[in-house]
Design a protein around this nucleic acid. Structure first.
Lengths: 332, 332
DNA sequence: TTGAAAGCGGTACCAC
DNA sequence: GTGGTACCGCTTTCAA
């Protein structure tokens, strides 16, 4: 292993033709079938593979696209990846994943450098959008699609979810199922999703004519364990006949807390989660969950990016993917 | 956006020096502090970012590493990614993920082309190892680390789990807990893990003095739904007091099948899974599972690869990470 | 120290 | 149709 790779010159020598002819034959820019055959024989014999680095330098095109997100371990991003990957692969692009690790500086540096290097396009899921993000977005050398909220004055293609409406849907569904004391376990209130989901929860209560009771609300950090703790807190503190968890992990923690407290689901307490990850379908009982359309957002972003990389220069698009509720046993 | 990027020539012109000097200043190969300052000012002013493509062509070094696996959605691979990513990033490499989609052709083509292009190294998790894999492995232009089983005569660094021993541990644990009719829901028998786990299951039975009963064995495809179906099959076909699922998804499917059939866990039937993913801890009841050390394997593979890329040419290593069993309620 | 120039491995234009 | 050659943007000798 680790042998030096043959170059186009060696292929040319073996085939007894010029490098121009080799290049043409390899790229289908010749009509001489015999030439193609000779070149291919030489390629075969040498095990030649064109250097994509050299091709990129010349063609200014890397056949790579980056997807930068907070954490590849997050199920929602994972779902996006699974949608983005095939779309881009079919179009001949490799996908490069970049976990920013929730670091804003790192995110900006991805924009600054990654976006200008080695990729033909970038899909970015920013946690928060800072002034530096905006500045960097204006300077990028390649098309960028942002998944998530973006200030209105930034003219970049943008695909967003609507977790506010999604949260409201969850509350209205629980109300329709008969619940009147609907608890809410949110993520951190100082994050974009945490804040939007809380707003949606309040909107849902208002729409149903229910009062906002602070005893029914608790904040966790979008993880299973902290969700369980927060749920225990609320469940022992006040009367509850339904719990809406701000994501599926929190809802799963809630299911465990309920079980520990001897409450049954959905008879005593109904539960709804959010994100509709695979966790929801495999939990016991299967968890109702509001999907924010991660898969759709990923697919749409990929297609949008593809169009931009193909030279589409119509005005920036702003797509909002509507949420949808999947009702399973936990709230039936 | 989409402005043309400045090149080193423009920086040189603005700074009033030659491109050689710019290059030197940027790479710390000069001792003239004033020169560095002038160049940096020009860089700042122009927003210059060196083209990594051009650098790579010259230096034959891309600062990229690929990790090719079956499906990034699989929790075990995800865990590897989370370990590999930081190790490589700290060493200045970007990680490129490639989901092969369980397609052998695709896997080989990754070896053939990706390994020779655009990356300085490759970590590969092959599902099956074919003759073509072996041939491709001998030809690679960059270091490759294989995670998973590899024929002994292939001299490539190899980090492996021991799912055979892991499966045996599961069976012995279930036997010790009192089970005598231990069913096994395997993945496809023609995959490396499927085969190894089956062998481990048989070894476990033998060690416990239990007979091998074909009625107790069923094959699924490592997914939740097919695991559930296969479990139903076995559970309705014969007498069972324990089920060992070849991965956590299959075991989760088994838990659901048991519930549908009105059997309780662990009282009627004990269940053990494999891979010890986050699913195991959040399931109901929490699932006992054999960890194959995915995180460790990922970390070790990354470090091995780093060493190889740094020129380490000692004989190929073969590391085996031992399995470990985490006992939770499902088999208590 | 600094600048000129020769590549790295391709592509594509240009004469022939 | 084919081969010679000028780049792509950078690094790195080599002289000055």
């Amino acid at each position: 292993m680790q042998r030096r790779r043959p170059t186009i010159h060696e292929v040319a020598k073996v085939a007894g033709v010029s490098i121009s002819s080799v290049s043409r034959a390899l790229n289908g820019n010749t009509s001489n079938a015999e030439m193609v055959a000779r070149v291919e024989a030489a390629v075969q014999q040498l095990g030649y593979v064109p250097s994509q680095v050299a091709q990129s330098l010349k063609t200014r095109h890397t056949a790579q696209v980056a997807f930068a997100m907070e954490d590849i371990g997050n199920a929602a991003y994972l779902e996006m990846v699974r949608q983005i990957q095939p779309v881009l692969r079919d179009a001949g692009y490799r996908l490069l994943l970049h976990s920013t690790g929730a670091d804003v500086e790192d995110e900006v540096s991805v924009l600054d450098s990654l976006s200008q290097n080695y990729v033909d396009g970038l899909i970015l899921c920013p946690l928060r959008v800072t002034g530096r993000h905006v500045a960097a977005l204006r300077e990028t050398a390649v098309p960028v699609i942002v998944i998530g909220l973006l200030p209105d004055d930034v003219s970049v293609d943008n695909v967003r979810a609507d977790s506010r409406v999604g949260a409201r849907m969850a509350v209205e569904h629980l109300y329709a199922a008969g619940a009147r004391r609907i608890a809410f376990i949110d993520g951190p209130i100082d994050t974009v999703p945490g804040e939007a989901r809380y707003a949606g929860y309040r909107a849902g209560l208002a729409a149903c004519g229910l009062p906002l009771d602070d005893d029914l609300v608790e904040f966790a950090d979008f993880q299973f364990e902290s969700g369980r703790r927060a749920a225990r807190e609320v469940l022992t503190r006040t009367d509850v006949d339904a719990v809406f968890g701000a994501n599926d992990l929190i809802a799963m923690g809630t299911l465990h807390a309920l079980r520990e407290l001897g409450r049954t689901v959905p008879d005593d307490v109904r539960v709804v989660g959010m994100d509709d990850t695979t966790l929801a379908a495999t939990s016991f009982p299967p968890l109702s969950s509001v999907s924010l359309g991660s898969a759709d957002r990923g697919r749409i972003a990929a297609k949008l990016l593809l169009a931009r990389m193909n030279g589409d220069d119509s005005p920036p698009e702003r797509v909002t993917v509507p949420p949808s509720l999947t009702i399973r046993e936990s709230s039936r």
